[in-house]
């Protein structure tokens, strides 16, 4: 199986550790991983701001870089959801359509395609799980608290395979952290308040780490934790699943 790794632009620039862990974890599980050169961005920053029509260049670049792989994997639910819903190519419409079906967020790839049942990982810490909205409600990585339906969680299932990890319960299991792309600056006051409240829930329950399948939410919460000089850290789920 040959998969291509898509590392979102801000992860590439600010959180290389999350991307490294994703790569190493996949390799550990026997997957041949390619990292196509010249990849940039999924186009979401423009699209969510109302400029989807300007995302054409991003789209074409994406399709050129990522055509022909069995799967495309990315450690970001938000970017994957955007591509699944909005990627299209004028130049290569068929390939564009194909990518939309072949792109997976890391944890859903691990549970649904690789069907991972065990992991050689250990993380002896108290951890709070942040359900990022686009991964959870968009990609349906976990059951949503609003619905009357059986509970499940793909990231949760994987974390339970990690030795010595202690997952903390939260008061609000799937409330948004308030990042929201350009929302975080355009609606600064509400965004920060949402982030503070989300972080406080984790702290109240003794989390040493906040993890999740989307680095952007974690970046937002990290910004708040560091501003408050908290000892609690954020960590991408790939780094926990890849820990030893």
């Amino acid at each position: 199986m040959e998969v291509a790794l898509f590392v979102p632009c801000y992860v590439d620039q600010f959180y290389p550790g999350a991307a490294r862990a994703t790569l190493e974890l996949l390799e550990k599980l026997g997957v041949t991983v390619r990292y196509p050169e010249g990849q940039t961005c999924c186009g979401q920053p423009m699209a969510n701001s109302g400029y989807e029509h300007l995302a054409g260049g991003c789209n074409e670049n994406f399709v050129e870089r990522f055509s022909g792989y069995d799967y495309i994997i990315s450690p970001s639910g938000s970017c994957v959801l955007h591509l699944k819903e909005h990627l299209h190519s004028e130049k290569h419409p068929v390939q564009g359509e194909e990518i939309r079906h072949r792109i997976f967020e890391l944890t859903e790839f691990l549970t649904d395609i690789l069907k991972v049942e065990e992991l050689d990982a250990r993380f002896p810490h108290k951890v709070g799980v942040h359900q990022s909205c686009h991964g959870q409600r968009g990609l349906k990585l976990s059951q949503m608290s609003e619905l009357t339906a059986p509970a499940f969680s793909k990231p949760g299932k994987l974390l339970h395979l990690v030795k010595d990890i202690e997952l903390v319960e939260l008061d609000r299991i799937d409330e948004c952290c308030g990042f929201g792309g350009t929302f975080c600056v355009a609606e600064e006051a509400v965004s920060v308040k949402m982030g503070k409240d989300r972080v406080a829930d984790h702290l109240r329950h003794g989390a040493e780490y906040i993890t999740g399948a989307d680095m952007s939410c974690l970046m937002h919460m990290e910004g708040i934790l560091r501003r408050n000089k908290s000892n609690t850290k954020v960590i991408h789920i790939a780094e926990i699943l890849n820990s030893h």
Binding site: D12, Q13, G17, T182, C184, R226
Partner: peptide, 25 residues
């Protein structure tokens, strides 16, 4: 990308930016 047009001031008001890694992925 998320700070386009607004600059970083609104971000910094209540948050820190990520610490810069020495190299990108």
């Amino acid at each position: 990308p998320f700070t386009v047009n607004n600059g970083l001031n609104p971000w910094y008001k209540g948050r820190e930016m990520p610490a810069p890694p020495k190299e990108s992925f």
